[in-house]
């Protein structure tokens, strides 16, 4: 099986705070991986390195065999946990922005997803609720034909019905030629869409495995396992 992402002994420090202490993780093609951990465990730092926004202090991370850079950014579609829309933008401007930026942006798919999410292209971005903003962010990210999708807290602060919609969009639009890494601490809502899960604690991957095999061997749900690991 081909590994789209491979991190070896990845470390990152911010001055004297160590955010990652030798994290090891591999992601196979065609898999959805859940990166699970509490706030401050290093999830976002890990994803930012994969997205090419931060440089590791030591160790390495390869995507499709290459270090993060121009090439990897062209095949990685990243949903950050922060907001990046400009205040003046309407939804159609945000779409145009992505289209200009990414060669793999599929306008037809974006139109389908906007309809599915019930988003109006003429709405101004700043008028959107938190749930609608998340839906828009996801629409933009899933409209790219990427090899690796990185979703940082796609369910954060979103109400249960919007959450369902977001999950449906992820399942419907996931292709077996691509891979996905999703961080969350709302494990219960999303555990059924993971192939593999990796638990990150204090900058290290403490447990990684196939979700079904973990259920079988531990006789626990991933949510229960999460609570046990991070109690």
């Amino acid at each position: 099986m081909y590994n789209i992402l491979k991190a070896e002994n990845l470390c990152k420090s911010y001055f004297n705070k160590k955010a990652l202490r030798g994290a090891n993780l591999t992601i196979q093609q065609g898999k959805i991986v859940g990166l699970l951990g509490p706030n401050g465990s290093g999830k976002t730092t890990f994803l930012k390195i994969a997205a090419g926004i931060l440089h590791p202090s030591s160790g390495k991370l390869l995507i499709d065999g290459q270090e993060p850079g121009v090439y990897t950014k062209s095949i990685v579609s990243y949903l950050p946990d922060t907001e990046y829309f400009l205040k003046w933008m309407k939804i159609k401007d945000a779409i145009q922005y992505f289209k200009d930026f990414y060669a793999d942006f599929d306008e037809k798919k974006a139109a389908e997803l906007l309809e599915f999410m019930k988003l109006d292209t003429n709405s101004s971005v700043k008028s959107l609720s938190k749930g609608m903003k998340e839906k828009l962010k996801l629409t933009l990210v899933l409209s790219r034909k990427a090899k690796l999708y990185i979703l940082d807290e796609p369910l954060g602060g979103v109400d249960p019905t919007a959450r369902e919609k977001i999950l449906d969009a992820i399942i419907n639009n996931f292709s077996e030629n691509s891979s996905m890494i999703i961080t969350t601490h709302l494990v219960n809502d999303i555990e059924r869409i993971f192939d593999d899960v990796a638990f990150i604690s204090d900058g290290e991957i403490v447990l990684q495995g196939n979700a079904e095999e973990l259920r079988l061997s531990k006789n626990q749900s991933i949510d229960e396992l999460y609570r046990e690991v991070f109690q």
Partner: peptide, 8 residues
């Protein structure tokens, strides 16, 4: 999609 589980 219906069961909200991973296609795999």
């Amino acid at each position: 999609t219906k069961l909200k589980v991973n296609p795999n």
